[in-house]
Write a protein that binds this DNA or RNA. Structure first.
Lengths: 135, 135
DNA sequence: GATGAACCCTGTAGCCGCTATAGGGTCAAT
DNA sequence: ATTGACCCTATAGCGGCTACAGGGTTCATC
């Protein structure tokens, strides 16, 4: 509950595995609240900032786009909102990831087929791969 | 072998499934050779352009980055080069796709676990998902 | 009290592969 | 003569950072 330790931006970065520039970027786009400043104009973060940035980085680690994270943050700030909305955001992200996987699996099998065309030909002129990519 | 049909940019786009703006972009970054122009300053493409753009789009469809495609194009222009280099580019792309798939599969299982936490809680205040994302 | 290293500040531009917008010109059919 | 579909250039924007330029602050060491 101590919220006045006064983390520097570098300390916050280390605590959360975030680049300093990324933290400033999050502040600029309103993902992270504006911190107070020291006498020397350094940003000074509280425990609340550490928790919030930790949340953001975990969600980013799961591939959530920043806009979805913004929505999740808004929900955490309003504890009376129905939990469904959180669930929906998570499911949306799950489906997005599943779509990407199946797209990439199709690519993989085509690339695999393509890679196995390379049999014997020594020069590009008789390369089956180039042939397969050509009209 | 007729190379003087004079496709307009729109016709080239339709023939290859490419947006007009994308064709101009490819020209600007040197992926597609500069075409001749009509009296009215319209771009005029030959069959060779159609084939080249077709090649580019197929490779893009397999997820090759434009830099790799640039390298593939350079190889197709030099038929004496060893075929290995083509093979290497294809394998690189295959490995890149495989890495992405396994990354996404990890995400999928984590998201799946997360989605299944949403049991019972009606409000964000007792949402297990938010809890799981929080420090 | 001077120096140096490690940190911090702002602002701007770049990455990829397009896509969108603004503000025009050309061409073919009616 | 006018419409409407096409074409032209140039510039800015998307996401999510990353890099760079050109400074200021803080703290330890000499």
């Amino acid at each position: 509950m101590s919220t006045k330790l006064g983390f520097s931006i570098g300390a916050l970065g280390k605590a959360t595995g975030t680049e300093v520039v990324t933290i400033r970027y999050y502040e600029k786009i309103g993902i992270l609240p504006i911190p107070s400043r020291t006498a020397g104009n350094y940003r000074s973060y509280s425990d609340a900032h550490v928790r919030r940035l930790g949340f953001v980085r975990r969600a980013r680690g799961l591939g959530f786009p920043l806009e979805a994270i913004r929505a999740l943050l808004a929900l955490t700030d309003q504890p009376d909102m129905p939990c469904e909305e959180v669930d929906k955001l998570v499911l949306d992200q799950l489906y997005a990831v599943e779509r990407k996987i199946s797209d990439l699996e199709r690519l993989r099998s085509e690339l695999d087929r393509l890679a196995n065309q390379c049999r014997g030909g020594r020069h590009v002129s008789d390369c089956r791969i180039i042939e397969a990519l050509s009209p």
